[in-house]
Write a protein that binds this DNA or RNA. Structure first.
Lengths: 340, 340
DNA sequence: TATAAATTCGAAAACGTTTTCGTATTTAAT
DNA sequence: ATTAAATACGAAAACGTTTTCGAATTTATA
């Protein structure tokens, strides 16, 4: 409401020109130490707060980064956000946060909102329903620094941060096989997602290497609806050719699996072993405790922010070159994959 | 980077004055329908995007709401955020999100950052370490619309949204007693917090009503350190005068309790019954499943945003009067409080 | 001592909008 | 036909910064 004192008033109080005061506050070499001190102390006394919009308008930058995630109630994305915020706060950047709720239309609207330069850069993970990427291409063409993480968009030539999806999935599947599984199922959110493609490849390769033939029906394409997923999994578990192991490519599908199992007579891990990509803090408190592939979420967020801020502060030297940077996950073995 | 076409260029293309174009786009009555159509179609053709900072500077508002929470990896706060974002998106508002990590110093820095008018309003839940509220008073004095939720600041005369903390806690404690508990402990994050005060009152009153004398040692003041909390709780459970029931005033302390119990020979619910304020989606998947008091998080978020936006769009008619609005929680009884 | 260079500051433009004020044209009223 | 009012638009100011350009004073150089 009341915006306090502005630069002109501060200058008048000091009997100086606004330009001088501005330079003094920005520690310009053109201003003597004596006046700098006077200006700064008066600014503190009057509690001067520069208007961010005037500054943004003039400098054509907002010190703001937009973050777009598909889900907020999600340990992985929440941790990434914390990582981004860590670095951003350190450098005086603000965070505009948007949740697409896994909805492409919402994603498009949000991306279009960012076309006007409200944020200096965008870091995002695409929704599971995103196949048409014209909105992202438009954003990229606009020249706005753009970084993807986790669920990346391969066709946009910029830097992406992911975990070792293929390798982790391969190792996870291998672990299931080593624990005695013969029929391993793979649970995915959407075939479009970069992570499902890579993780599915790792899953398939591990099967083939073990001489197991991948059953098409065991690659289960789930939806966004929790209850639907549970029923889908339950049906698979009730079929006469049911899997004895499950690799969930995202956390929520592991939880859906646990719920589905509760609707059967099956026991984990005796009848069904479960491993999942998950950043749950309490995987050890589930019954049975869940074997997880944990992504380095905070690090991923930090690296995204670091790179972006480097690009923003030294635009000449740094370009977001078209590359995929991989930070490995960590497998934690718990009861859900215990051999008998 | 490239900001596209601006108002002046758009006006030149149309051979009109910038003022006319501005008015046409803002659907002013001073402009004829004919020119409005011309302007709008040309604006779409050239993909004109108004500069948000120029607009903010001129209008002295940013269509941005700042949200300050103490923790991001927290089901309750994540749900509240989703609720806020729902309403905000509907009305074209953007969300600046800040996480204090339960740290007062961080909270102060963030609040000071908002003093310059970057956001049109603030909705927040204070950190557990906040006792000195001078920074909040300054923010309030600044005239910025300010709303608290959950962890409120009673001394700031504005509108606050909470759940029925006292009543829920009272009922939760009563439930434990009804299930046979004679010695109920209360776990809190910090004595300063509004929610702990209210929830503790409810706890005490339920004990007194049942003729049970509150044991001071059973009101356990925990810290922010997960491991410390677990040990604190474990020690309490190992004492020769251990509680047989626990009411956790926040979710993370219930989880700490579960971890602590795993380090003892005790069983839930046979030796210890547990109930907790919690918005976990998977309370039913814990072993044993956790009896919860679930706050109407999404609704709280939505109501905060609704009220704030009403205040922002019709500033004259709406004031954030000094009142506490209560939206009741819901108790879901599960295995962790089952009587033998 | 005269001149060049360094130091320190001010005036004004610029960023891209919205809005106040003014004005020309058209329509209505007498 | 004359005047009043309504309609439709333009010129310019304003929002609060930063920065370009210029100028005055002081210091260094010859």
């Amino acid at each position: 409401m009341n915006n306090g004192v502005n630069l002109k008033e501060l200058a008048a109080e000091l009997k100086l020109a606004p330009s001088t005061v501005s330079r003094a506050l920005n520690d310009s070499w053109e201003i003597s130490e004596a006046t700098k001190k006077k200006v700064i102390s008066m600014a503190e006394k009057l509690n001067y707060q520069p208007n961010p919009f005037a500054r943004s308008l003039r400098e054509n930058k907002s010190k703001t980064i937009a973050v777009i995630i598909p889900e907020r109630i999600n340990n992985f994305f929440a941790q990434v956000m914390d990582g981004i915020e860590n670095i951003a706060q350190e450098h005086g950047y603000h965070l505009l946060v948007y949740n697409t709720h896994e909805d492409v239309d919402r994603e498009k609207k949000i991306v279009n909102l960012l076309l006007n330069g409200r944020a200096d850069a965008v870091v995002m993970s695409v929704s599971s329903q995103t196949s048409d990427i014209s909105h992202l291409e438009k954003l990229y063409a606009r020249g706005l620094p753009l970084i993807f993480f986790d669920r990346i968009c391969t066709d946009i030539p910029t830097t992406k941060f992911i975990t070792n999806d293929y390798e982790s999935s391969y190792q996870g599947t291998k672990h299931l096989i080593q624990q005695g599984c013969k029929k391993v199922a793979f649970l995915m959110l959407s075939k479009e997602l970069s992570i499902t493609k890579e993780r599915h490849r790792g899953y398939l390769d591990a099967l083939l290497e073990a001489g197991l033939s991948p059953e098409p029906a065991f690659s289960l394409n789930c939806s966004m609806c929790e209850e639907q997923n549970i029923e889908l999994i339950r049906e698979m578990l009730w079929s006469n050719n049911r899997p004895d192991g499950i690799l969930a490519s995202v956390e929520k599908l592991a939880l859906a699996t646990y719920q589905a199992v509760k609707r059967t007579k099956l026991r984990i891990p005796q009848d069904l072993k479960v491993i999942s990509f998950s950043n749950m803090g309490i995987a050890g408190l589930l019954e049975p405790s869940l074997t997880t592939i944990t992504q380095p979420a905070i690090t991923i967020g930090q690296e995204c922010a670091k790179l972006l801020i480097k690009k923003l502060t030294k635009p000449k030297q740094n370009d977001l070159i078209d590359q995929v940077i991989t930070i490995p996950s960590k497998i934690t073995i718990r009861s859900s994959t215990l051999a008998e």
